[in-house]
């Protein structure tokens, strides 16, 4: 058939005409795929739970100014970052939002022995849109049972420490069974908070430390869940065993334990107890 032969010819023509372009693209791909030279010394990569976003940004800015080192920050849920480290992610420091994930890595010999430090305790808050009429001061967590609250965002309790704390607080208030059908799960506290900021959930149980970001502040208000309602959300940090910048990592750990470092954590909603193992 004529038409078919015509198309085949055209196809071949395209193939030839494009070969130059394909060759160039291939060369470019190869050039990009070749690993870049070893990273410059004095560069630290920190993997941190999402609740540390604001606090670590402030700490890193100070640390960089004082030492001249360059610090990269990777944020995620403690569970996800743990999995990444188990599979060889090139992080130097791991800030977990709980002790359990750091201890798990310690048991697997993936962190520098003795480097695990519990340096702060996180707080759980209820975060609602600015125009919400819920009165938590009066009714406590029970205010969440109000029918106007159709969706309550919490971090996924299967792997996010604040999600586990949220479930514990709801159980403590005898609200879990009633409110469970209204729960939606965020991947980490950042996404959980974002569900309220974007107006898709009417309340979120999230981290106090995220309440200091300008966007969060502008969109809503928060109420501190009493600390006795849930097990303490202890923040732990450790140096990753595969790190090639252990000295610099140690320096950063020393920095967060200085008076200045601890003040920054407090400023962003963490408690910094004196006693630590």
């Amino acid at each position: 058939m004529k038409a078919r032969r015509g198309t085949r010819k055209l196809f071949r023509k395209i193939l030839h005409a494009r070969f130059g372009a394909v060759g160039a693209a291939l060369a470019l791909a190869v050039a990009l795929a070749v690993p870049s030279p070893a990273r410059a010394s004095g560069q630290l990569t920190i993997a941190a739970a999402a609740d540390l976003d604001s606090a670590l940004h402030a700490l890193i800015a100070r640390f960089e100014r004082q030492t001249g080192a360059e610090v990269r920050l990777v944020l995620g849920s403690s569970g996800n970052l743990t999995v990444q480290i188990e599979h060889g992610a090139p992080y130097d420091l791991f800030f977990s939002a709980d002790v359990a994930h750091a201890v798990k890595l310690e048991r697997e010999n993936l962190i520098v022995p003795g480097s695990l430090v519990r340096y702060a305790v996180g707080r759980l808050v209820v975060y609602v849109p600015r125009d919400s009429s819920l009165d938590f001061a009066e009714r406590g967590l029970a205010a969440l049972a109000d029918p106007s609250v159709r969706k309550i965002a919490i971090a996924n309790p299967r792997f996010a420490p604040y999600g586990q704390a949220a479930v514990a607080a709801l159980r403590h208030a005898n609200l879990y069974a009633e409110l469970e059908p209204r729960l939606v799960l965020g991947e980490d506290v950042s996404q959980t908070t974002e569900f309220v900021v974007s107006g898709n959930a009417q309340a979120a149980l999230t981290a106090l430390s995220l309440m200091f970001a300008p966007a969060t502040r502008a969109a809503g208000r928060y109420w501190l869940v009493p600390q006795s309602d849930y097990p303490p959300i202890e923040q732990a940090v450790a140096i990753v065993g595969r790190s090639r910048e252990k000295t610099l990592a140690r320096k950063f750990l020393d920095f967060i334990e200085t008076k200045e470092g601890r003040a920054i954590f407090r400023q962003y909603g963490f408690a910094t107890p004196e006693k630590r193992p």
Binding site: S77, G79, T82, V83, E86, K104, R158, F159
Partner: peptide
Amino acid sequence: VFDQVQAG
């Protein structure tokens, strides 16, 4: 699958 991997 994502949840299960994150939970280890």
